[in-house]
């Protein structure tokens, strides 16, 4: 508990007196002024220690191997379920077909069926030297990959001006905005992203503009953007969704 003991010393005196100039340590020390009256670091940490031990007991740590094994089990089940889903879909078409063909598409439902957040490359691959000094990039895309888009969106937006060479950041910000139920913001971001061909972001954005307008219920705009997207990387997805909109 060497780190905690050093920290207690800092709390008693200014961290600068102990040669600590780390800004993050200073911020943590500042936080302790907000302890409840009569409370102490030791008492709080004792409670946290107990809660931490309970957490470890309840929640086993997941390693990379554990997750791969879990996914390996899930994949055959998903394949089986997919075939069952196909069979069910055929039945649905054969039965009251005329009624379903005449019913207008429910745009919210269509959106929910087709919207998926794409994986970002920022955690999957290394892009060389530049990544080593971009911890904020990693942090933002960790939130993105976790599906925590309400937190990811402001974090990614902050990166757009900071890393202008990463021209796909506006696109991923748009995805987070759409995932956060903010289609108007998403539209603005995807339209900006249309201005670059970096990582085919212009093609991808066209498809997501279609989805964004679908979310808003503007089927005409949605169809127009999906038409544009048909010649791009998400062409198949765009065609399938466009068909359902007809």
């Amino acid at each position: 508990m060497k780190h905690r003991e050093n920290f207690k010393k800092w709390l008693q005196e200014s961290p600068v007196d102990h040669g600590v100039t780390d800004d993050l340590d200073r911020k943590a020390v500042e936080g302790f002024q907000y302890l409840d009256e009569g409370s102490s670091l030791d008492e709080s940490m004792e409670r946290l220690d107990q809660r931490f031990e309970s957490l470890l007991d309840e929640q086993p740590l997941t390693s990379v191997d554990t997750e791969k094994k879990a996914q390996a089990v899930v994949r055959p089940l998903m394949r089986q379920r997919r075939w069952m889903g196909v069979a069910a879909a055929i039945l649905l078409l054969v039965l009251p077909t005329l009624y379903f063909l005449n019913k207008p598409a429910n745009s919210a439902q269509l959106f929910a069926n087709h919207f998926e957040t794409p994986r970002s490359p920022y955690l999957l691959t290394s892009r060389g030297e530049a990544d080593q000094n971009m911890p904020d990039l990693t942090s933002a895309f960790t939130l993105y990959e976790q599906g925590d888009h309400e937190q990811a969106l402001p974090a990614i937006r902050e990166l757009i001006t900071k890393y202008p060479q990463q021209e796909d950041l506006t696109y991923y910000a748009g995805v987070s905005a759409l995932a956060s139920e903010m289609p108007e913001d998403a539209i603005a971001l995807f339209k900006q992203a249309q201005q670059t061909q970096y990582q085919k972001v212009d093609e991808k954005s066209a498809y997501f503009l279609g989805l964004s307008y679908l979310k808003l219920g503007d089927l005409e705009q949605a169809s127009q953007w999906l038409k544009k997207a048909e010649s791009g990387v998400y062409g198949e997805k765009a065609k399938n969704l466009a068909k359902e909109l007809e």
Binding site: H3, R4, F7, L24, D25, K27, A28, V29, E30, G31, F32, Q33, Y34, L35, L41, S44, M45, L48, D49, F52
Partner: peptide
């Protein structure tokens, strides 16, 4: 742990 706690506070 104590740093996370301090930052939160």
């Amino acid at each position: 742990g104590h740093l996370i706690f301090g930052w939160c506070m």
